[in-house]
Structure formats: C-alpha cells, structure tokens
Simulated assay, not measured.
Amino acid sequence: MSFSLNEVEATSKRATRGAGYGWGLSEEAGKATRWLCAAGLDGAQILADLLDRGLAHAPGRHRPACQGNEWGGDEILCPLATGAALSDHMGSLRTGDITLTNVAAPALLLPFAANIARNLKTPVTITVDGVEVVTDGPSLAVNPALPSDATLVKVALGGILTAPAASASRAVPDPAAWAVLNRFAHRTYAPATEASRLLGAGSGLSDND
C-alpha cells in the first residue's frame, strides 16, 4: 500500500513523539522520514527500527558532545539529536569536516545533510564507514546498503552528485515498519471518555425526542 508524503510525515512525527521524543525532534523526524521516502529510501523502516531501540528514554546519553570537530557521546548517538546538532553547527563545516563516532541509523542523518546543503548552497558528503553519500539538498546520490549502525561517520562540505536517485511522490513503506510507526503513534492518542464516545456517536448527552 502506498501513502502520501504528507501522511508519512504526520505519522512519523506522531510515532516519534509516542516513542518518547520531544515535539521538536519529533517534527524533525517527520520531515526527515518524508525526505528519505521522497529520495526513494524506505524512511518508515529506518525510523521504525530507530524508535524500537528506545533511545529516547535516556536522551542525554545519546546526544553528541559538540566540541571541536570530533563528536561522540556516552553511548551510541541518536541520529535525530545528532542531525539537529549538525544543523545548529553547520557553520563549523566551513573550517573542517565533522567526524561522528558510533551512530545509530546513520541514514537518518542524510535529510539533515540536505538541509545544510540547501542553507550553505553547496553539496554535502557524508561518509558512513567508508561509503560516500552526496546530497545537494533536493537530490541524493546514495549507495542503498547503508549499515544500521556506523562506527565512523564523516560530514564534509563539497562533493559531486552523480546519478541522483529519482524523486518519489508517494511512499511504499514496509508493512511491518508502518505498523510499528502506528503502534507508537497510538500512544499519543487521548483515551476515550464516556462523553467523547457519546459525542463521537452523534447522540450527545441530551434527548430531543
């Protein structure tokens, strides 16, 4: 089954919030998942795998220490927190590459790299354990076999975008991954009350007969 990119973004945002992330990073996750799907990758699968790892339960341990050009954390880095930090420190890339160690779901860094490329008006190259990925913002040239975890990720300005992936207008996520996102998303729904059930049924609390 296919879904619109708007639906992918909305579901991913709510799922990320349901997994325990704040609304700010949840919004970033929705946009990132949409961008990945538009680039021809299964963003829903990538996000679902990340959310299942429960990194939001100890966010401070999975954020990078943004000092100098070599970033690490207490434990494996969350790509959402790391991507947001890269966006905040994009100006640092003008003076040198940024190296990240021990990163979960590194494919989720690609949308943040695209945002940097758009803002700095230059392609950005991300090297994930030796695999180079280049984006100019709207487009992506990628080897699809990115690892689920990366030991070393390098982010650098520049690069040549060859054979960009075709842009997709709809997403066809893996059904199991889509079910995971909806499972997390349902955690954000308020439980029904007797009054809301009656209002939803259209009867209200009064009888006009």
Results as ranks from 00 to 15, higher is better:
residue 2 S to M: 11
residue 5 L to P: 03
residue 6 N to C: 07
residue 9 E to I: 03
residue 13 K to D: 10
residue 13 K to N: 12
residue 13 K to S: 12
residue 16 T to C: 13
residue 22 G to E: 04
residue 23 W to V: 07
residue 25 L to H: 01
residue 28 E to T: 04
residue 31 K to A: 15
residue 33 T to F: 08
residue 36 L to P: 09
residue 41 L to I: 13
residue 43 G to I: 10
residue 43 G to K: 06
residue 45 Q to F: 11
residue 45 Q to L: 15
residue 45 Q to N: 08
residue 46 I to K: 15
residue 48 A to T: 03
residue 49 D to P: 00
residue 50 L to E: 10
residue 51 L to P: 06
residue 54 G to P: 09
residue 55 L to D: 05
residue 56 A to T: 07
residue 58 A to C: 06
residue 59 P to C: 04
residue 62 H to D: 09
residue 63 R to D: 04
residue 64 P to T: 00
residue 66 C to A: 14
residue 66 C to W: 02
residue 68 G to M: 12
residue 71 W to T: 05
residue 74 D to A: 14
residue 76 I to E: 14
residue 85 A to E: 13
residue 86 L to E: 13
residue 87 S to K: 14
residue 90 M to K: 15
residue 92 S to N: 14
residue 93 L to I: 01
residue 95 T to I: 06
residue 96 G to N: 02
residue 96 G to H: 01
residue 99 T to N: 02
residue 100 L to N: 03
residue 101 T to I: 04
residue 103 V to E: 02
residue 104 A to S: 09
residue 106 P to T: 05
residue 107 A to P: 02
residue 108 L to S: 11
residue 110 L to Q: 06
residue 115 N to W: 06
residue 115 N to D: 12
residue 116 I to F: 09
residue 121 K to L: 05
residue 121 K to F: 00
residue 125 T to F: 02
residue 126 I to E: 04
residue 126 I to M: 10
residue 127 T to P: 08
residue 131 V to S: 11
residue 132 E to S: 12
residue 134 V to I: 03
residue 134 V to E: 01
residue 135 T to E: 10
residue 138 P to K: 00
residue 141 A to R: 14
residue 146 L to R: 10
residue 147 P to T: 02
residue 148 S to H: 13
residue 149 D to S: 14
residue 151 T to F: 05
residue 161 L to D: 04
residue 162 T to P: 05
residue 162 T to C: 02
residue 163 A to S: 15
residue 169 S to K: 09
residue 173 P to Y: 03
residue 176 A to N: 08
residue 177 A to W: 00
residue 177 A to V: 00
residue 178 W to Y: 02
residue 179 A to I: 00
residue 180 V to N: 04
residue 186 H to Q: 09
residue 192 A to V: 03
residue 195 A to S: 11
residue 196 S to R: 07
residue 196 S to K: 06
residue 196 S to F: 01
residue 199 L to M: 03
residue 200 G to A: 01
residue 202 G to M: 02
residue 202 G to D: 04
residue 203 S to R: 15
residue 203 S to Y: 13
residue 205 L to G: 11
residue 206 S to F: 10
residue 209 D to Y: 11
